[in-house]
Simulated scan of single mutants.
Amino acid sequence: MQRLPIRSLAGLAAIGVLALTGCGTGTVAPADGPAATGAGRTIPAQEVMRLTQVHEETGMTLLEGPVLDEDGNLFVVDVTAPEGEPKVMRVDVAKKTSQKVHTDGRGAYTSAQFSPYDGRLYLTDFAHGEIVSLAPDGGDPRTFFSRKVAGARMNPDDIAFDEEGDLYVSDSRGLAEGRELGRVVRIDRDGKKAAVLADKLAATNGISFDEDHRGLWISELTRNRISYLLLDREGGVASRHTAIRYDGGVAQTDSIAVDADGNLYQGLHGRPAMAVFDRYGEHLATVEVPADAAEGLESATNVAITPGGTTAYMTVSGPSGGYLYTFEALAEGIRQSNGG
């Protein structure tokens, strides 16, 4: 595909870093679902540290990920980092330090996930329609997948792995044109087979398995809609329905994570906050950056919850820079709690 200037990529990422909703097989999704009502309680988030400043070369910074490995190490990506600056970083939250893990002159990485199959760190390159992988220490970069799927190149945003290591990817095609061309794509763990599970979506963004891997939660950025895809035994879509329609004003639905109780943590672009719903769509809580710290912060894209614990780490960005915030989640973290 034609390579876009990174400033343009930054704009695309900022206005639409993914959304997802599926067209199920054998079902027709309603145009609208029940709107999320009630504010729930407010959970204040506390600043851990500033990780990045606005890059002169790209005019912004946009933190994504984040993801915890089996040893509890936290990894974060910066979508708009230029060559030489950390595009993937490892964060020591206790010492409040960060270390560059990977940089290159090409990728615009919008998410990171560890594979349960080979243990490597997988990154989505939104700009170039590729998925790349790294060794856990950031070395040995490989292109895992770069082909067209059903005749069209992807704009991959987020990834959810099933228990066998197959990838479920939110494809945000059509974002730049404002067209509903988004998809959910399944890629086998060897990168040899790919299939479209859902299409005609409005900037597919967040994607995460539910707590028992029966189905996928997906969000559409430009529809502010969260849908549920029930999967069959072969990993295909058995049914799909609109589950939550979020009335966020200027804020849009970004990435999704799920805790051990099945609660959804919905990141927001356009507001430094995160909405928390239960599996039935009840709005349980809103995680917010305190008002006196929110100036210059425009999004809370994603979250990772410590496995077996309730400490959550949220990526927050804006003209003031890219920050890591923490809060207490409503339930313990699991693999699905690394935001997808």
Rank of each mutant, 00 (worst) to 15 (best):
H241S: 15
G267R: 02
A257G: 13
A45C: 08
D232T: 03
G191D: 13
K192T: 15
G138A: 10
N205Q: 07
G107L: 04
A304K: 01
D78S: 08
G38P: 05
H213L: 14
A152Y: 05
T222R: 13
D190E: 14
H102M: 13
E177Y: 08
N155C: 08
T143L: 13
S208W: 02
V237A: 07
M49P: 05
V132E: 14
D104F: 04
T27P: 05
D292I: 07
L121A: 03
R225E: 10
H213E: 11
G178D: 06
A257L: 03
T37H: 10
D162N: 12
P34V: 05
D92Y: 12
V287R: 01
Y280M: 09
F209I: 02
G308M: 11
G24M: 01
R106V: 14
R106Y: 14
S98W: 09
L231V: 05
E177L: 14
E85V: 10
D104G: 05
G178F: 03
P141D: 04
F75A: 03
F161W: 03
A127W: 00
L121V: 09
E220R: 01
C23V: 09
F114V: 09
K193A: 12
L68H: 05
Y246P: 00
P136N: 10
L63I: 11
L74M: 11
R147A: 15
N263W: 02
H213Q: 15
A36E: 09
A36K: 03
G182H: 01
A94R: 15
A19T: 09
Y109L: 06
E288G: 08
P30F: 06
K96P: 11
R279P: 00
G267T: 04
T310Y: 04
D32R: 12
A45G: 11
M60C: 12
S299N: 15
I6P: 02
Q46N: 13
V184Y: 02
Y323V: 03
D190A: 15
E177S: 15
G40K: 01
A273M: 10
R186F: 02
A108H: 04
P156W: 00
D125T: 00
T97W: 08
R245L: 06
F161N: 00
V149G: 01
M154H: 04
V54M: 03
L167K: 00
D118S: 08
A293T: 10
T286A: 08
S172T: 08
D212L: 07
L330N: 03
I131H: 07
E282W: 11
A304Y: 00
E234W: 09
T52G: 01
R179V: 14
